[in-house]
Amino acid sequence: MKVLVGIDDTDDIDSMGTGEFADILAKTVEKRDWGKCSRVTRHQLFVHSDIPYTSHNSSMCFVAELAETKLDDLITYAAEFLTQESAEGSDPGLCVAVIDKVSSPELLIEFGGKAKKIVVTKDEAYSLAEELGIHLSEHGGTGQGVIGALAGVGLRLTGNDGRFKGRHRIKPAGNIATVGEIIAQTNIEVVKAIDGTVLSADEPVLLGQKVKSVLLEHKCVLLVCPAENTSNEVKWETCAMKYLRKY
């Protein structure tokens, strides 16, 4: 069964980030043979003075293809892990949603969208989780992280939000790879120009310093921009951070 796992607010300014927590959880699921996990996505939430985030208010989410009998094990392990490992002074939250059993996924998606634009409350998060049959739990401090954890799950469910954590290593920066090579060597599924054009397999792409992908239409997508220096006749280059910030 497919399960979405969202976490938020596990860190403080000096500790390991929430993304690392998500990575460790996903790796543990696989090491214990409970299932297979996708890469972690980062979802930007609303930045406002009323929200006590550490530095950037983003939550992390991954998909686990789990054996049916392992759901309770996952929840128990994740809960203990967050309780024990989250930074002192943090407010960790955990959300686990079995995708096919969410009673009204559109409400979960709506909640995720709201959390990008306005301040939402813990009460709203808990009410919605209960209504939809989703696990939501807090593991320290104020437990404020349940909001981001639930929102992250809702946003991942859209298939159209977030950047994948980490970078893709294909060739060193400044080298050229074809779309076919990029797809063969990574879990990137589509290479797309920022205007939406899908590039063909033989199209060459100039690789930048950090090759990062985004979640679009439920796929891992590498976005490319028109190359600034066309002297070597390569039309496309991987997008710089200024284009990826909005994802």
């Binding site: 980030g17 993304g19 690392e20 980062r42 530095s55 950037h56 983003s58 950047r163 954590k165 980490g166 970078r167 930048g208 310093q209 950090k210 710089a240 951070m241 200024k242 910030r245």
Partner: peptide, 9 residues
């Protein structure tokens, strides 16, 4: 900061 929070090259 951690790589995923980098704003600029």
């Amino acid at each position: 900061d951690v790589e995923d929070e980098i704003y600029s090259e």
